[in-house]
């Protein structure tokens, strides 16, 4: 089964453009083994158009970092994949892809959420802010500057999520002391263990009051 999944995935790019054609010509067991019974039945009945319906892309309008975007996605595409693959905003990271690490943290309508567990189709009409939208031109956001000043990272992979979460943490009013910061930043894992410096950076950014 896993092997079949890989085969399907490797064809993803092609599939996105030629799904209808794919299903019309394909009798491959790989596909048949994976699709739910109803579709299977439809496929057997040669109702290929119906099969294709499920994979039809949906149109969606988003404001990403202040820019209106009209996009088209399959229902299964997550907000994280949409940002990274379609909009090429690769700042938001795919760490665990299961909502456990926080590396994919973005703001939706001003609230921090996990983009890896958010379906893109459900974000229609919403405002998304990612790490790419924080700085104003060459001027870093105060939280970015504080992370650099205090060395709030080593490898940097978790950093975009940490910073987006940290900005929200301060704006929510959950950064009054070290314990509170640690508690309200616990959804962002740093495997390099830069936590003490992350806490210092957030403390200073909060005190400066520009977040």
């Amino acid at each position: 089964m896993a092997h079949h999944k890989e085969e399907i995935n490797s064809e993803k790019e092609t599939l996105q453009h030629t799904r209808r054609k794919f299903f019309k010509i394909s009798t491959a067991l790989t596909a048949v083994a994976l699709i739910p019974s109803k579709i299977l039945k439809a496929a057997e009945d040669n109702v290929d158009e119906k099969v294709a319906e499920r994979f039809e892309k949906q149109t969606l309008t988003l404001e990403v970092n202040g820019v209106q975007q009209t996009l088209s996605v399959e229902p299964r595409v997550t907000l994280l994949d949409l940002l990274r693959e379609q909009l090429k905003l690769t700042g938001s990271k795919k760490g665990c892809d299961h909502g456990q690490c926080g590396a994919c943290t973005v703001h939706v309508n001003g609230q921090r959420v996990l983009s890896c567990l958010s379906l893109a189709v459900m974000q229609n009409g919403k405002k998304i802010a990612t790490i790419e939208g924080l700085a104003k031109g060459d001027d870093l956001h105060p939280m970015q500057a504080a992370f650099i000043k205090y060395d709030g990272f080593q490898c940097g992979y978790c950093t975009p999520g940490q910073i987006m979460s940290a900005v929200a943490c301060v704006r929510e009013g959950h950064a009054d002391n070290e314990d509170e910061i640690r508690q309200y930043m616990s959804g962002n894992i740093c495997r390099c263990g830069a936590y003490p410096n992350i806490v210092k950076a957030i403390t200073e950014a909060k005190q400066k009051g520009e977040v």
Partner: peptide, 30 residues
């Protein structure tokens, strides 16, 4: 019978990614 409600999706999307559940239809109630 294969439809499931989705709202926050924090558990359901994870279960779908892992293949633990595979609804044929998601009903967004938000």
């Amino acid at each position: 019978a294969t439809a499931q409600i989705i709202a926050g999706g924090t558990n359901l999307v994870d279960l779908m990614k892992r293949g633990v559940t595979a609804p044929e239809k998601l009903v967004d109630i938000t």
